[in-house]
Design a protein around this nucleic acid. Structure first.
Length: 451
DNA sequence: GCGATCAGCAA
DNA sequence: ACACGTGCTGATCGC
């Protein structure tokens, strides 16, 4: 019996008091909804996507959730203890510099202290008051000794609260492992999501966050195998846009962001250094993630006009990308929807909005959904194929996580090299793309070492 | 206890 | 004046 109080992770609730008043009516409703859904699936030509991708994926996801992933709880606790000490020290220094105690974690109280009592430069403001987010703090870092300490305090408490303290509570006593829930139907683009816990946002970028990732480990005698698609979204873009300049960059094996920077900026005789690469990278990601000129300017901390100029420059060098975007938007406006290469469909009602900003959002969603959704289709196919190929080979290596463009496997060390060959082969062949898909594998005793 | 708000992690 | 990719989680705060 499933009560009205289903758990957020979709687990069945057996609370007698929450049992439905009329279970037969509930069952009938589900039956009737299924009939209507079948009609729509047929009308939209979605049977192949349903039958070849989403349905076969269910048992792959179920197996992944059942197997789970091992966490080194002792190591996690050690890292957490070190952090607790550092947080306490920072807190004392912050109170000392502030001249009083306050709730550091309250943006409201922090805003009063920084901008009213200490008189630091106010940057942006939110709905309710001053913004104190990471970008604001980095801009006023040199104005007061308290700022770098608050930045550190924020980073450490975030890591401790979100990962170090909560992950161990989710270890299943039966298996000693963490069992996430993958949601197949939440993300509008067709991506998966992960909850309770979310294992798709484990830190890796920052120095202090990275050790958290090394706490995800293989069982004794086993190893983790991580296999990443290299630049899958930009390859999808090159493919769907038919952009030969982009294809040539991939064929040459050059670093994509450096090469993009060279295309955009080198004609001015500009040297391509880290700053140029970083701008190009942001533009590449901007296209893949559907960022506006405003969002791009915000990320790069440059005026919007300058961001718009970079985007213009990008389109001059990659004209087929410009054509693809224009055609995708035109068609989406006519049809009210977009589809991925495998026929996944997303309605974009924003395109009919009279609000200019909302309309522009719709345009970016239309383009972004084709790219991100196609990448999601491809990796889902790869998951199904890897799962089947490993089983057919009689291997004990199991798929345990999917992180959008990465698959993580765990297997006996004796077979992991052969498993790697199978996985890389299946991932590359999952879809016939031009430029072709490329996969970067790595093996190690923990998740950090495997990358 | 709940929702709104702010903040920050990842691909 | 305002705007600002998504999904998930945690803390604070006011009701």
């Amino acid at each position: 019996v499933r009560g009205g109080g289903a758990e957020p992770d979709g687990q069945l609730s057996l609370d007698e008091a929450e049992a439905p008043a009329d279970p037969a009516a509930d069952a009938r409703l589900a039956w009737e909804l299924a009939g209507r859904q079948r009609e729509l699936i047929e009308e939209f030509g979605l049977e192949p996507l349903l039958n070849e991708v989403e349905m076969p994926l269910i048992e792959v996801l179920a197996a992944m959730e059942r197997v789970g992933v091992k966490l080194d709880a002792e190591r996690l606790a050690e890292i957490g203890a070190g952090m607790a000490e550092r947080i306490a020290q920072l807190q004392a220094e912050i109170y000392e510099l502030a001249g009083r105690e306050f709730t550091i974690g309250s943006p409201q109280q922090l805003g009063v202290l920084l901008f009213e009592e200490l008189g630091l430069s106010r940057k942006r403001r939110g709905k309710t008051g001053y913004s104190t987010d990471a970008r604001v703090l980095s801009q006023i870092r040199d104005e007061h000794e308290i700022i770098p300490r608050i930045e550190q305090w924020r980073e450490l408490t975030k890591l401790k609260n979100t990962y170090l303290d909560s992950l161990p509570t989710l270890i299943d006593p039966e298996t000693g492992r963490i069992h996430t829930t993958f949601n197949q139907v939440t993300a509008a683009t067709g991506r998966l999501s992960s909850t309770n816990p979310n294992l798709q946002n484990i830190p890796i970028r920052s120095e202090v966050g990275r050790p958290v990732r090394s706490c995800f480990v293989a069982e004794p005698g086993h190893l983790l195998l991580s296999a990443d698609y290299d630049q899958v979204e930009l390859r999808v873009l090159a493919h769907v846009a038919g952009e030969d300049v982009l294809r040539e960059i991939f064929a040459s094996g050059e670093d994509i962001h450096t090469a993009t920077a060279a295309e955009m900026l080198a004609t001015d005789g500009r040297e391509i250094g880290p700053a140029e690469r970083s701008k190009a990278k942001m533009i590449n990601y901007g296209i893949a993630y559907g960022l506006s000129a405003f969002g791009l300017a915000d990320r790069l901390s440059i005026p919007r006009e300058e961001a718009a100029a970079y985007i213009d420059r990008y389109f001059q060098r990659f004209p087929a990308v410009q054509r693809f975007i224009d055609e995708t938007i035109e068609r989406a406006e006519r049809e009210g929807r977009v589809t991925t290469l495998l026929g996944r469909r997303r309605n974009i009602p924003e395109l009919r909005s009279s609000n200019r900003q909302r309309k522009l959002l719709g345009e970016r969603l239309a383009v972004n959904t084709v790219i991100q959704g196609t990448a999601a289709d491809i990796i889902k196919l790869a998951m199904i194929n890897c799962h089947r190929a490993l089983a057919d080979a009689g291997f004990a290596t199991r798929l345990i996580l999917q992180i959008h463009d990465e698959l993580l496997f765990e297997g006996p060390e004796t077979e992991i090299e052969r498993a790697r060959e199978i996985v890389v082969g299946e991932m590359k062949q999952a879809f016939d793309l031009d430029p072709p898909l490329q996969v970067e594998p790595g093996v190690g005793p923990d998740w950090l070492a495997a990358k």
